[in-house]
């Protein structure tokens, strides 16, 4: 069953904001506390919010299991791909080939205390995004699966 209209409206309103906050945590993983897992968990909690506010049948229409699975696999492939790219460059697996290279995210960072710049840290932000997407899909789909377990029991 769905929860009351107030909770549903609240969930609708809050969903994009938790989402963008989670993305912020993911994106600023190399500057502030946070990173892929934490941000991914925040985003997954946004999905959990929608899941709890609506009934399972409605949620099944909004958050597709297939899309979540795809998100998870794509995140992992992106993550491992960032490692494999180092192999292509000619360095060992997981070598941070973008750091200090001047390319994307490749700005060097000034040593010492400073607030930092988003455009640093090489492959770390890419991996953060990959892990964030993966954790998003993974944790959301765990909740969906467990709820489907309850539903099946009743039918």
């Amino acid at each position: 069953m769905r929860m009351s209209k107030i909770v549903r409206t609240g969930a609708n309103l809050l969903y994009p904001f938790i989402l963008i906050f989670g993305l912020y945590v993911i994106m600023h993983g190399h500057l502030t506390p946070g990173g892929g897992f934490q941000g991914g968990a925040v985003v997954a909690t946004a999905a959990a919010l929608v899941i709890v506010a609506y009934s399972y049948d409605e949620v099944a229409g909004m958050l597709k299991k297939t899309a979540m699975k795809a998100r998870e696999s794509i995140g992992l492939l992106l993550f491992i791909g960032a490692g494999i790219a180092a192999l292509v460059v000619g360095a060992p697996f997981f070598y941070n080939f973008l750091a200090n290279s001047g390319l994307l995210f490749g700005m060097p960072v000034i040593p010492g205390p400073n607030p930092g710049d988003l455009n640093t840290a090489g492959v770390i932000p890419i991996m953060n995004i990959a892990v964030g997407i993966e954790v998003w899909g993974g944790l959301a789909i765990i909740l969906l699966y467990m709820l489907s377990g309850i539903r099946k029991e009743e039918s």
Binding site: F17, I18, F21, Q38, V42, T45, V52
Partner: peptide, 15 residues
């Protein structure tokens, strides 16, 4: 940031 995460997320388990 940790406080914001708390504020936004603790509510989900309450729900």
């Amino acid at each position: 940031d940790v406080a914001i995460v708390y504020a936004l997320l603790s509510f989900v388990s309450t729900l």
